[in-house]
Design a protein around this nucleic acid. Structure first.
Lengths: 347, 347
DNA sequence: AATGTAGGCGGAAACGTTTTGGGATGTCAA
DNA sequence: TTGACATCCCAAAACGTTTCCGCCTACATT
């Protein structure tokens, strides 16, 4: 004899009453409830999740899908662990547990997600690394599984997401550099087919033109958002005829590769060239000279993300009446030495 | 009507047969099996995990417990994501899924684990960050949940674990430094009450004595294994009267803080002082001068860990007849510039 | 023709839980 | 005394799956 039945027998009451007592339902004498709770604690009883899920059709578990491929691992740089903390803070309030579902390296993310969802292992999902056209979004919508995404995509339908304020970052980075006398400012971005690559560069272009600086396509460097990409970006910068005096990175991690290549070429960062990074990557915090960059609190981002998700789950909606559907997450500039000079100033 | 019942009705056979067909059991006509499989694919049927788990008493899920506290996040530096990949490679063979269970920052790890285990959400667990006396090990042993640990502990009983070869690293680091003329070699380590702190320093001591170099306790610097700790270690090094010419770090990440403090003090790393690191932390890969350090493949470690776990699960034991109970994981020296000089050599 | 055997299938029980409908008891007002 | 009502509890059904047991058919063996 196991589980709730054991407990019921031990107390000499029915299992139904035990269940109601444990779950805080009415219709149970306070004295009885007290006894049940005491006995449960004593015997170390915890409800079997399978039985409960089967009956209720819900698991009280939220899944966070991440990728465990080599490349994703290299680039994530603790991003998810940081967000997780914020998510859990929100979920704890509702006795929800967070599980991370790492998609195996070889498997198609969409298939993996389908498998996980169909197994009814989780009540809701958070997906990340959203692609331009992400089949996972259609999948989840059709399966009617509540979800939230980290990152916008162009997939059809409106769904809840939280994304970083790329436009704002590009705008403020340009403003900052222009204020220091820069006129030729390069920018890195992924392919313009990726939503992010488009948005980031557009904002950069608009801001430049606001200052009457013509947009020069050769200053837009399309590379991967990784250390490797940073190295390559630096390489391409060095090839340019009329070399820029500043460069804006779309991902802080790129700075590592970029620094290396520039140092090889004898360029003094923060003297000959200004660099501004973006997004928090602990790995890049220790560059010398220190990197000026836009950062955010992953914890707070996690909180917003969690609330956005819950606001889209019928059972919890009431708790988050104005739970934003879509959130553009602001970033804060943390000044460093990498852009601490005025163009033309004597050294 | 849902699930297997729907499928059975659609095919006009009983649910029992459908189940047997899907699970590759005998006692089902090959033609029937083919039809069932086809229909399942067409209707997108995937067994409900709750029902299955309830019936079978197993979930086909392995849990990897990690910590999501701020400190753990800072120090982990992608360690788990890396191992995960190897684990999954092993588990995939048995159609086991890996879930990461992040222990919320505030919660007691042992209570969290108890909660998760009691819910019967996973068949087995992998725990990490094992403490000197880890209550989780007793808990899992008593609950008869198969598990494996990353890291030895002094907890009672023999249980499966995989740990890094601290002794070997300390020994080889000393050998390497002595060969380059160093006689005063400092070492960092956590408190000697932590098993690791004891083992690491003991090996260092033995190796020194093998070369006839007396052990000097003042050269053992007890600090946290973090960037912060590295900074502090450098600070303490600078206070020493008879300053050492080399230092061995127990965790690569410490190098970041250490470098910073030493550079502030005008010490030239790789010229005035040799530094050797240990364990793979991507964040430290980009230091200048590059760090000599002992590294390993997280992927391969994950594979070994996975096999060790399965070898201890009755259902899978047969696949891993000589699945090592305990594994001391070797590391490989990747030479860098940080110790590339001979003591006394002219520069 | 009778018997044995194997293959293939259906029926039903079981896993542990929550929930529903209703039954027993007690209290209060008419 | 009776009825109405609230309180507390029990019994049973249901969730979706796997598995045990036994039945049926077809075929081979005597």
């Amino acid at each position: 004899m196991k589980g709730i039945r054991l407990l019921a027998e031990h107390l000499d009451i029915s299992i139904g009453t035990v269940s109601r007592a444990l779950n805080g339902k009415p219709d149970v004498n306070e004295e009885t409830r007290r006894r049940v709770l005491a006995a449960a604690a004593e015997l170390g009883y915890v409800a079997n999740q399978s039985g409960r899920s089967l009956r209720q059709g819900e698991t009280k578990v939220i899944g966070l899908m991440i990728e465990s491929s080599q490349e994703a691992v290299e680039n994530a740089d603790n991003f998810f662990l940081g967000v997780t903390s914020g998510l859990q803070h929100v979920f704890a309030r509702h006795k929800l547990d967070l599980l991370m579902l790492p998609c195996p390296a070889g498997e198609d993310p969409c298939e993996y997600l389908k498998r996980m969802v169909a197994r009814r292992l989780v009540d809701a999902m958070i997906i990340s690394n959203t692609q331009r056209m992400d089949r996972r979004i259609d999948l989840l919508s059709r399966a009617k599984i509540p979800f939230a995404a980290v990152g916008r995509s162009r997939s059809a339908g409106n769904y809840p997401w939280v994304d970083l304020d790329f436009e704002g970052v590009a705008e403020r980075a340009v403003e900052r550099l222009v204020a220091r006398g820069h006129r030729r400012i390069a920018i890195t971005a992924p392919s313009s087919e990726v939503n992010l690559g488009y948005v980031f560069v557009e904002s950069y272009r608009r801001t430049l033109e606001r200052y009457g600086i013509p947009f020069d396509p050769s200053l837009v460097i399309r590379v991967k958002s990784s250390e490797q990409g940073g190295y390559q970006a630096a390489h391409e910068l060095l090839q340019l005829e009329d070399r820029p005096t500043a460069v804006i990175l779309i991902y802080e991690l790129m700075a590592i590769g970029l620094y290396r290549r520039l140092m090889e070429a004898g360029i003094r960062i923060g003297r000959d060239l200004a660099v501004i990074g973006f997004r928090d990557a602990p790995r890049a915090r220790f560059l010398q000279p220190s990197l000026s960059c836009f950062r955010m609190s992953l914890y707070d981002l996690g909180i917003a993300l969690g609330q956005t998700l819950l606001a889209n789950m019928p059972a919890y909606r009431a708790f988050y009446p104005d739970g934003g559907h879509n959130i553009i997450w602001p970033l804060e500039l943390v000044p460093g030495e990498s852009d601490a000079f005025e163009v033309g100033a004597s050294v």
